[in-house]
Design a protein around this nucleic acid. Sequence first.
DNA 1: TGGATAAGTTCGCTTTTTAAATCCAGAGTC
DNA 2: GACTCTGGATTTAAAAAGCGAACTTATCCA
Lengths: 154, 154
Amino acid sequence: MSQIPLARRSPVPPESCNLAKAIDIIGDRWTLLILRAALYGVRRFDDFQAELSCPRTVLSGRLKNLVEAGLLTKRSYKSPGKRARPEYTLSSMGLSLRPILIGLTQWGDAWLGQGETPPISFTKAGSKSAIRAAFVDLEGREVRPDQIRAVLRG
Amino acid sequence: MSQIPLARRSPVPPESCNLAKAIDIIGDRWTLLILRAALYGVRRFDDFQAELSCPRTVLSGRLKNLVEAGLLTKRSYKSPGKRARPEYTLSSMGLSLRPILIGLTQWGDAWLGQGETPPISFTKAGSKSAIRAAFVDLEGREVRPDQIRAVLRG
DNA sequence: TGGATAAGTTCGCTTTTTAAATCCAGAGTC
DNA sequence: GACTCTGGATTTAAAAAGCGAACTTATCCA
């Protein structure tokens, strides 16, 4: 049962909505899976390919898009006795997606996990108790979902 | 500059990862745009179509998928003097994606907004100061991103 | 009976995805 | 230098998905 009042259109047209822009960049299965792997430390072309089992053409294109969008940084690494090769690491722009992907992980744990213990969970450093995605006010105090209000144009 | 240590593979294989499962359901441009519109109150087929400007075939298929996945509920509505028609509203499963989409909106505001005032922002009811997506511990206190630790199996 | 309307579906056509093979550049080897 | 190995990326052709327009269906209203 949705408490959201009926609307014929969203209040912000998709063209000027930063959520829609974000969706244009990361709203793609392979792109999201690449970011997931990158957040776990995967950096190299063949490692991404082995992890995702996706066509190399697609991986190549998605990596290029992510570099152009500024989420990944392409630089060289060199193992001793090997030639230099590119590696793809998250920029600060890409790293700042981590809370969103962790939130989505926990959403998946809650709704898709079929009651099993999640294979990965998240805690605060030095603590054993779980953390969760939520909203906080300026002072860092939690705001319950039913307390959230949208405000248009600044 | 990424502080994430190099890994050849992610610690949880995509097949058993709830994040990967979540991406399979919502990791699609049109699907995400449908959920965005639904969170703003759009419910009807033609309203979604006008909002998204997507082919009706695509919309039809995505709505069916979202209903099957349990994120949307299909029921009938009836305006007085009109025949009954289906409407699509968010289930509690779909509603619980709201923090993630608001978080993504704020990520877009920060990185894609080109310094402009965001067209929409979020506040706590009865307050004017902004709220933001974050992590909290069991007591509802904020946990900074660098304090987050991943724990495997358990 | 005819028209208006909302919610899809059908139908050709175009674009993207996929999987496999191929290309390419440079380090190590002879 | 020539030869080979290898990680990274491109080419190619078939399969899948996306696209826009027209069409169908069902019901309310005149």
